[in-house]
């Protein structure tokens, strides 16, 4: 079995009487795309916030690259190579596409405390940013203001910024959200090729994308993982059929 890169061990999170995460244990192995699916309100966003930092679990722990990172802040996990993308694009809209990618490269370099040198003259940052843009096919719009990009291009830029971090694992929060069929096909092809660079924990609503991409799937319902397995196993699981997919699947 491939090496486990990222895992949660029994994480639990309660908000008052609501249990948003209950004893969730998941792992992401090298080279795979592990999809987490679940209906609205299943606790997907809470789960992501605990994995990436920003929300501390009440119990359990998060391990990344063999280290317990439960107490580490978002930026420390990012520096270790945990790259997340946001469901609603979190991009600097006034900046150019290249500047957004440069920010990722700058974060990866860990050296923002330089005040007088032009950032565009830094060859290493720029190469890294441009390579990431080329990878997602945005190199021709590098000089465009991000606010002028189409929704689909912004989704791609989210992935490009994550790529500049030279990630050891991706955590993607509904990367297909709001995309038309053409856009989601393009992104599906891209994500499929990314798994060789780093495994992807893919939280997604778009079932076509999940079925096309996922090596394994975990089903989250009311804060609990009711099943984890390959696509065939999940399709055949009676609890999943009842709780989530419905008889249509």
């Amino acid at each position: 079995m491939a090496e486990v890169v990222l895992s949660t061990r029994g994480i639990t999170k309660r908000f008052g009487a609501v249990t948003a995460s209950e004893d969730i244990s998941l792992d992401l192995r090298a080279g795979e795309i592990h999809a987490v699916i679940g209906p609205n309100g299943a606790g997907k966003s809470t789960l992501i916030a605990q994995i990436c930092g920003g929300l501390a679990p009440d119990a359990g722990r998060v391990e990344f690259l063999g280290r317990d990172v439960t107490a580490r802040p978002v930026r420390a996990r990012a520096r270790m190579g945990l790259a997340r993308t946001f469901q609603i694009s979190a991009l600097a809209m006034e900046d150019t596409v290249l500047q957004n990618a440069l920010l990722g490269a700058l974060g990866a370099s860990g050296r923002p405390w330089r005040f007088l040198r032009g950032v565009l003259t830094e060859r290493s940052l720029r190469d890294r940013a441009e390579a990431a843009l080329a990878r997602v096919g945005l190199d021709d719009v590098a000089a465009v203001r991000t606010a002028e990009l189409s929704h689909g291009q912004r989704r791609l830029l989210e992935v490009a910024v994550a790529l500049t971090l030279a990630p050891r694992a991706f955590v993607m929060d509904e990367p297909m959200a709001g995309l038309g069929s053409e856009g989601s096909e393009r992104l599906t092809t891209l994500l499929g090729s990314l798994r060789r660079e780093a495994p992807i924990l893919l939280v997604e609503h778009d079932m076509d994308a999940v079925f096309a991409l996922a090596d394994r799937v975990s089903v989250l319902v009311y804060g609990r993982v009711i099943a984890t397995g390959t696509l065939d196993e999940i399709r055949a699981d009676p609890a999943v059929r009842e709780a989530y997919l419905g008889d249509a699947a």
Binding site: R75, A78, A92, E94, A108, V161
Partner: peptide, 10 residues
Amino acid sequence: QVPQRVETVG
């Protein structure tokens, strides 16, 4: 513009 983004790049 997007502090959460700055944080997620480390």
